[in-house]
């Protein structure tokens, strides 16, 4: 398959994954408003589905993903089982991390989503380490690091990019620029708004694109991933999107411009890809209804699984710290 032509099967899969993420997080929006259904801050990627799916679908299964606090979309796109993710978000014993990760620290090493950190700016140095292991072992795989525009202000990101470029490590740095770092918008936290310009500082290729166009994200990722895979070193992608919810579901968003929010809502990545597929007669209304129903059922089954699962035993808090040597 060339980067230009996404075949119809792949486009259908991409759309289906976006719907899954959207429905999964719509459910979390609802659950966050119920008492004691989910634990902790629900930090969602609602409206950023094209970034997760566009990037991850362009990877190979053995490629590694290191993600951040806004991880649900990345993990679902990588193939995490929604049941075990939902149970984990509910902090149940059956969760993917036995209830020890919760919504924010989900790690699914079995699908090569090896680490998630909520420390802003931590994913780049972690990813550099993972990519070093890939290079050290002469593996054909790459590491994708997701971080936000807010994280771009952390010193650790500079250290990681410099080291990755110096050692030509196979790191695909993906700056998921959603315009917000907490309550501060991009011009309030960065003197240069085009994060991609930093690629020049490290002598690596950079590319910026519309993060709400899943096919544009996919195509660029394919090209950039190929560069990393060929031993030429890291690349920086700036994927421009917009945070459609608060920092988390606890955020009243009083500082956000409602007109701007509405403008981005009209550019909804799921809706626009749906229109494109419909206009090109790839999928019919009937197909869309079937995909919606199917993914809704997946999410409902995940919630039921989570609800039916027990909490971990309190004393199990003492486990999983050390490996006996």
């Amino acid at each position: 398959m060339t980067a230009e032509g996404l075949n119809s099967q792949l486009r259908r899969e991409i759309y289906t994954d976006m719907v899954l993420i959207r429905k999964f997080e719509e459910k979390l929006i609802a659950l966050a408003r119920e008492k004691a259904r989910v634990v902790g801050m629900q930090i969602l990627s609602y409206g950023q589905e094209a970034v997760a799916v566009g990037v991850v679908k362009a990877l190979k299964p053995d490629d590694v993903v290191v993600t951040n606090h806004r991880s649900h979309g990345h993990l679902l796109a990588k193939g995490a089982d929604p049941k075990f993710l939902m149970a984990e978000i509910m902090c149940k014993a059956t969760g993917v991390n036995k209830g020890k990760a919760g919504t924010l620290h989900l790690a699914v090493p079995e699908i090569n989503a090896i680490m998630t950190s909520t420390i802003v700016g931590a994913s780049p140095p972690l990813g550099v380490g993972a990519a070093f292991a890939q290079q050290y072992r002469n593996l054909p795989d790459i590491t994708v690091v997701f971080f936000g525009d807010g994280a771009a202000a952390e010193g650790s990101v500079h250290e990681a990019m410099n080291l990755a470029a110096l050692w030509k490590l196979p790191v695909l740095f993906v700056c998921e620029n959603n315009y917000w770092a907490g309550a501060q918008c991009l011009p309030e936290h960065s003197c240069v708004e085009e994060i991609v310009r930093r690629a020049d500082a490290y002598g690596m290729p950079g590319a910026a694109m519309d993060g709400n166009d899943v096919e544009a994200v996919y195509k660029t990722t394919r090209e950039m991933a190929e560069h990393c895979r060929s031993g030429k070193g890291p690349v920086l992608m700036e994927v421009r999107t917009y945070r459609m919810r608060g920092h988390g579901e606890h955020d009243p968003c009083h500082y956000m411009d409602q007109v701007e929010l509405q403008q981005w809502a009209e550019r909804c990545p799921v809706k626009s890809f749906r229109h494109r597929l419909m206009n090109e007669n790839l999928l019919t209304d009937k197909d869309f209804a079937a995909i919606d129903a199917e993914q809704e059922a997946v999410v409902e089954a995940a919630v039921t699984f989570g609800d039916d699962s027990p909490f971990p035993a309190a004393e199990d808090a003492l486990m999983d710290l050390w490996i006996n040597s």
Binding site: V64, V66, P109, I114, M115, A122, P124, P125, L126, G127, V128, G129, A130, A131, F132, A133, Q134, Y136, T143, G155, S156, E159, A160, N162, L163, L166, W167
Partner: peptide, 24 residues
């Protein structure tokens, strides 16, 4: 491996590489 003067990246290198099975 000689590294740049980058303690956060050196420690990150160790954490990430060890997660992948190396012994840094």
């Amino acid at each position: 491996k000689d590294t740049p003067v980058s303690e956060a990246a050196i420690a990150g290198l160790a954490v990430g590489a060890s997660a992948m099975g190396l012994r840094p």
